[in-house]
């Protein structure tokens, strides 16, 4: 246990240089764009020179780039920087919630939590559809089902997210009207940050159902690539362990098939978990398109708006958060290895 703690601390320390590197890279690229952010923030061509000058002062735009960067990071650290676009503090927009947030109304949840919830839903799809499909496909090797699952990975990777999104909107919204595409219900109180869980904790079941209803389809679209990929990885890993000697010995000692499958699946879990961790990052990257297609006021859309308006303080804040989540996901994967396999040592 002490070893595990040391390992986690060591890994957390390596987060710092990574975060600096990621933000620095985004900052430099944003700075290379030949545009005048101050003018854009002040309102474009017709902005008055005094306002532009005041914004330059406020955001240190006249200083060299490294001073700007340090200023930005410091302010981000203390949540003391206002997005020139939304006029809210950046972490209020993303995490803490604002009095005047999504669509004008106040929100208790920052946009990050909306995206996180969408991502977790998509992740559930991947785990609970992808893994069973993979196992099934391995058990029925070379059957039509197996071929279908194997081609699903290919179809998933080559289907554009926006196309699938619009197709499903056409079917479920335009034709059958079973989903909603506007508004985003919130529970009355923020507890954990995940809306569905909060709603259930508060006993506000109808709100939980509304949220699930709102997210079910976009999460499926977001997770679609992952389902095929995980099914394929699971199939191959499971096939390998299913032919292992300990499964043969398991049969010889008269274990039931369900128990044999448990042994095989647990042994196949290491590659599956690795890919799941990577998939989680992929989901975050896929969120902007899905959110735009389905009109979800999440962080991905927030960042697209930020890019469009040269709002690079908000952009870097968002990138910082994405990077942090990605690294955390991979840290969790590494810890999971030790939980699965007693041979793993840190």
């Amino acid at each position: 246990m002490a070893e595990l703690k040391r390992f986690i601390v060591r890994r957390l320390v390596t987060f710092i240089p990574t975060l600096i590197g990621v933000t620095l890279l985004v900052f430099i690229i944003a700075n290379l764009i030949p545009a005048d952010p101050a003018r854009a923030w002040a309102g474009g061509e017709k902005a008055s020179p005094e306002v532009i000058e005041r914004i330059r002062e406020e955001y240190h735009l006249n200083d060299p780039w490294y001073v700007q960067y340090v200023f930005l990071m410091k302010k981000l650290f203390t949540n003391d920087i206002v997005s020139p676009r939304t006029h809210n503090k950046i972490w209020d927009d993303l995490i803490f919630g604002t009095s005047q947030g999504v669509a004008g109304a106040g929100t208790k949840y920052g946009r990050f939590f909306i995206t996180l919830q969408l991502t977790l839903f998509a992740f559930l799809y991947i785990v609970f559809i992808g893994i069973p499909l993979g196992v099934l496909s391995a058990l029925k090797k070379d059957s039509p089902l197996d071929s279908a699952v194997r081609s699903l990975a290919l179809v998933g990777v080559s289907t554009p997210v926006f196309w699938l999104g619009y197709l499903l909107i056409y079917i479920f919204f335009v034709r059958f009207r079973v989903i909603e595409l506007a508004g985003f219900p919130e529970p009355t109180q923020r507890i954990t940050g995940i809306m569905v869980i909060d709603a259930l904790l508060l006993g506000e079941n109808d709100i939980a159902i509304q949220i699930i209803n709102r997210l079910a389809l976009p999460a499926f679209v977001l997770g679609f690539i992952g389902i095929g990929v995980i099914a394929r990885i699971t199939r191959n890993a499971f096939l390998e362990t299913w032919n292992a000697d300990y499964i043969e010995f398991g049969k010889a000692r008269g274990l039931r098939k369900s128990r044999l499958m448990r042994h095989a699946l647990k042994n196949a879990l290491v590659p599956i978990v690795t890919v799941l961790g990577l998939q989680f990052g992929g989901l975050l990257g896929g969120a902007p398109i899905t959110e735009t297609v389905f009109g979800i006021p999440g962080m991905g859309r927030y960042m697209i708006e930020a890019i469009r308006n040269f709002d690079y303080p908000a952009l870097i804040g968002g990138v910082l958060l994405f990077a942090l989540i990605y690294m955390l996901a991979n840290l969790i994967v590494d810890i999971t290895y030790a939980l699965i396999d007693p041979r793993v040592r840190y």
Binding site: Y246, A252, R256, I340
Partner: peptide, 24 residues
Amino acid sequence: LREIRGKEIAYIFQDPAAALDPLY
């Protein structure tokens, strides 16, 4: 047959390292 395997007729395999599940 499953009820006979391992109960009435038991096996000992060649390679004990491979016959045991490493995760349990």
